[in-house]
Design a protein around this nucleic acid. Sequence first.
DNA 1: CTCCATAGATAGCATCACAAAGTATTGTGA
DNA 2: TCACAATACTTTGTGATGCTATCTATGGAG
Lengths: 115, 115
Amino acid sequence: MLPMRPELLKGHLDALLLAVLEPGPQHGYAVIESLRSSSDGALDLPTGTVYPALHRLERAGLIASDWETVGGRRRRAYRLTASGHTALREQRAIWDQFAAAVTAVLRGRPWPATV
Amino acid sequence: MLPMRPELLKGHLDALLLAVLEPGPQHGYAVIESLRSSSDGALDLPTGTVYPALHRLERAGLIASDWETVGGRRRRAYRLTASGHTALREQRAIWDQFAAAVTAVLRGRPWPATV
DNA sequence: CTCCATAGATAGCATCACAAAGTATTGTGA
DNA sequence: TCACAATACTTTGTGATGCTATCTATGGAG
């Protein structure tokens, strides 16, 4: 698995985090592992990327957190808010468009008119 | 067509430019129009984005340029170098991986083991 | 007792697309 | 004739954001 260039993720991280939290609450460390496992190691994000991003999403009101203690360890469980669910829907649509556009250009073929 | 958030493109622009230049030389202004038309308006990049990016690619040796005058207007025709062709191949592979990983996470399904 | 996995935080940096402003030429419409 | 759009290129500065590096802390394995 090639190491992912850092900048590639820019602007797409929020969508990934929201998507990972969609099935149910998770704490930060678990989010990192979810991303890694569900992408077969392709998305192996450092804590310095994920934790600040979660804080940002919480400030934006897209997720909320509760502290919990499990096995003597404090952890913060994040869950999607209503706005978070809405944002995730939008982000998915934006990603689909973006991905289709980039793929079309990279393939050198014109945009598929029939979508 | 939704306005594309700026950061989404980060790290992917080089691949797009190389791909547009693959069929043959083009000048900057034409590159912008190629991107717009081949993405049905989704990729409508400002000159302040494209021209510096072309300079960057030229400094990196992935493209080369020749000045030409057409109808009294000076324009710079860019073409892929050998390194540029190689880079484009790599970038396509990287994009495919990245797109597959993001799509998998957004779809909430595990990475397809059979690729 | 040391080391690793778990769990979290953050300061500072680097990258890069973009906004905004400018130069210059050609063609068009009033 | 004169304003304006389209063509064509350039550059300065800024903002957003992911990453590196470093730090704190606990629990279990060896």
